[in-house]
């Protein structure tokens, strides 16, 4: 079943960035996390959850998404931390 999430578009997807979301997939499955980005090509979303050792990242494929619900906004401290993920810190390099 096609879902609206795939059709939202960049501006809508961007509005979810740095918000804590609940992503519903089929059959009672759901994942929570801080949304870092959404791939505008596949509508896949990248969720981060902080752990003792750092962070756990979950990439949810766009085609599997049924619903995305915003749980809360990030406080300034969390936003700052989230901004460190997948930043353009270095240029992508090719393997030798």
């Amino acid at each position: 079943m096609p879902h609206d999430w795939l059709l939202l578009g960049p501006l809508q997807w961007f509005s979810y960035v740095h918000k804590q979301v609940k992503v519903k997939l089929g059959r009672d499955e759901e994942h929570r996390g801080w949304l870092v980005t959404v791939d505008p090509v596949s509508a896949s979303l990248v969720l981060v959850n902080f752990t003792e050792r750092g962070a756990s990242v979950r990439v949810v494929m766009g085609h599997a998404v049924e619903e995305v619900e915003v749980l809360r906004e990030a406080d300034p401290e969390t936003t700052e931390l989230l901004c460190t993920y997948f930043l353009p810190l270095e240029t992508p390099k090719l393997d030798p």
Partner: peptide, 17 residues
């Protein structure tokens, strides 16, 4: 332009991921 900026920021971040 806003949409292009949003798309490129999202895409760049995803590619880096």
């Amino acid at each position: 332009q806003e949409e292009q900026q949003a798309r490129s920021a999202l895409r760049e971040s995803f590619l880096r991921c």
